[in-house]
Computed example of a mutant assay.
Amino acid sequence: MNKAFVKESDDEDDDLEPEAVALPQGTRNYMTPEGYQRLRSELEHLMNEERPSVVQVVSWAASNGDRSENGDYLYGKKRLREIDRRIRFLTKRLELAEVVEAWRQPNRDQVFFGATVVYEDKVGEAFTVTIVGVDEAEPLQGRISWISPVARALTKAREGEVVTLRTPAGLDELEILEVHYPQAPDQA
């Protein structure tokens, strides 16, 4: 099939993955040590294991002749583009990374990156969240990005304070019940 009829982009602009959260302009990519290591491991796996394996399959498939109807070749090329895009994305994110060791935080009663916060909304429902990097956020598991509205409202507040959170439904008040930080690795 003629390439003119197939939507393939050679642009480098597709480095940002659809689920990737954009970082605020001019900021570092704050991460926990665990989050940094997880992205680093994924990058190493893609570069050292998965990509070479797919390249081998594509080379084998290409040697079989007609590439236009060769499923292994076509799928392999598509998978290589996906892997290369993810490698570029991870490389850029790791270049911007600033690992924050939350256990070093001197103001342990105040909310900063890496803190685990227990708060109560104005209805009286309690929530526990940990403030992490944008690439580590899992809201359903209580891990929220430092750029999220809740994290921004909580940041710099202290235990016992009430902060205001703007939501689509209006203003909500959050009372900070507890602030915890992880212990030093040698104490864990």
Rank of each mutant, 00 (worst) to 15 (best):
94 L>C: 08
114 G>T: 11
64 N>C: 15
55 V>P: 04
74 L>P: 04
103 W>V: 04
97 A>L: 03
54 V>H: 02
116 T>N: 02
47 M>A: 10
104 R>T: 14
100 V>G: 09
55 V>N: 11
69 E>H: 14
40 R>C: 03
62 A>R: 10
73 Y>E: 00
92 K>T: 00
42 E>W: 05
91 T>K: 05
41 S>L: 03
42 E>Y: 05
62 A>C: 07
78 K>C: 10
71 G>H: 06
111 V>C: 12
55 V>C: 08
113 F>Y: 04
67 R>V: 13
76 G>D: 04
73 Y>D: 13
105 Q>S: 06
93 R>A: 07
65 G>S: 05
79 R>H: 06
50 E>Q: 14
91 T>H: 06
98 E>G: 10
109 D>F: 08
93 R>Y: 01
77 K>Q: 02
57 V>D: 10
86 R>H: 09
67 R>S: 13
49 E>R: 12
51 R>S: 00
113 F>W: 02
72 D>K: 13
95 E>P: 00
113 F>N: 08
66 D>C: 04
122 K>G: 02
76 G>K: 04
70 N>M: 06
47 M>W: 00
49 E>F: 09
99 V>A: 07
43 L>K: 09
90 L>S: 00
49 E>P: 00
115 A>G: 03
90 L>Y: 02
71 G>E: 10
79 R>Q: 05
122 K>I: 01
66 D>S: 10
112 F>Y: 13
100 V>T: 10
86 R>G: 02
122 K>M: 11
91 T>S: 13
51 R>F: 03
96 L>Q: 13
65 G>H: 01
123 V>E: 14
80 L>N: 14
78 K>G: 09
120 E>D: 06
101 E>T: 05
44 E>P: 00
98 E>F: 10
120 E>I: 01
114 G>S: 09
103 W>A: 06
52 P>N: 07
39 L>G: 05
78 K>Q: 15
72 D>H: 11
101 E>H: 12
53 S>F: 10
67 R>D: 07
44 E>S: 04
59 S>L: 04
67 R>M: 15
48 N>Y: 03
72 D>Q: 12
69 E>W: 02
81 R>W: 03
106 P>N: 12
79 R>S: 11
68 S>K: 12
59 S>E: 15
51 R>T: 02
106 P>E: 15
65 G>E: 12
116 T>V: 10
98 E>Q: 06
40 R>P: 04
110 Q>C: 09
75 Y>H: 06
103 W>E: 01
90 L>K: 03
114 G>R: 02
120 E>F: 14
87 I>M: 05
52 P>I: 02
75 Y>W: 06
71 G>R: 08
